[in-house]
Design a protein around this nucleic acid. Sequence first.
DNA 1: GTAAACATTGACACCGACGTCAAGGTCAAG
DNA 2: CTTGACCTTGACGTCGGTGTCAATGTTTAC
Lengths: 122, 122
Amino acid sequence: MRIGELAERTGVSPRSLRYYEQHGLLSARRAANGYREYGEEDVRLVAEIRALLSVGFTLEDTRPFLDCLRRGHSSGGSCAESVEVYERKLKEIDEEIRALLARRAEVAAQLAQSCPGCFVRG
Amino acid sequence: MRIGELAERTGVSPRSLRYYEQHGLLSARRAANGYREYGEEDVRLVAEIRALLSVGFTLEDTRPFLDCLRRGHSSGGSCAESVEVYERKLKEIDEEIRALLARRAEVAAQLAQSCPGCFVRG
DNA sequence: GTAAACATTGACACCGACGTCAAGGTCAAG
DNA sequence: CTTGACCTTGACGTCGGTGTCAATGTTTAC
């Protein structure tokens, strides 16, 4: 399968696939003419990348999951390294939520001060 | 007062002050030599910018607050336009919080599936 | 007089995941 | 042979608020 087909089957642009490869997340053997050649398993790898990106992981975060799949695991998250990433991300998200709640309180307080009549639900 | 003094008094770099001016948030008359000349009121304006940036406003968001102060109001938030910005920001923050909570749930669910033994507080 | 500190404008660098364009090679169908 | 669809690499643009450097002019202090 060449890059166009993989792109179509995964819904990911060729540009992105090359980008993933450039960062060592995907690999492809080359045909005689220099074209990238992918196998069926790459569809799964790309799907894993997208699933993780969609929940806020960075590309770098996805690396352990791909390694895990390549090692033959049926789930990318079933390796120790992946679990560590999960837990780190949960911590990061919790921290972001806390920061946002604090910001919300500050903004609401400023609004209340500037505009005593304005009612702020929350 | 020249830019260096204003920078020192507000704790904002000269670079940032020029950037604010470039985006029409601050203005300065020019001395004969081309140097920017600021007045006392600019200290207040810069403080307003920083206060708002620190709670997550963009530079553009601060514009109504500065206009409000220039119109003579003692608080930058006591004009209708500013209140609108406050309310918009609260909505944005609430939306971000909701999105983060949703992401957290997704990540926790993925982790639970990959690693049934892992306990996730929250 | 001269060095240090300060001012000016302009422009590049950063971060991340791409979109998009450029300039070209490859290949199947007509 | 030609058109057009597909592939290649390389490089710039995005977004925001600066840091930093360059090259040059000004003021201040000794």
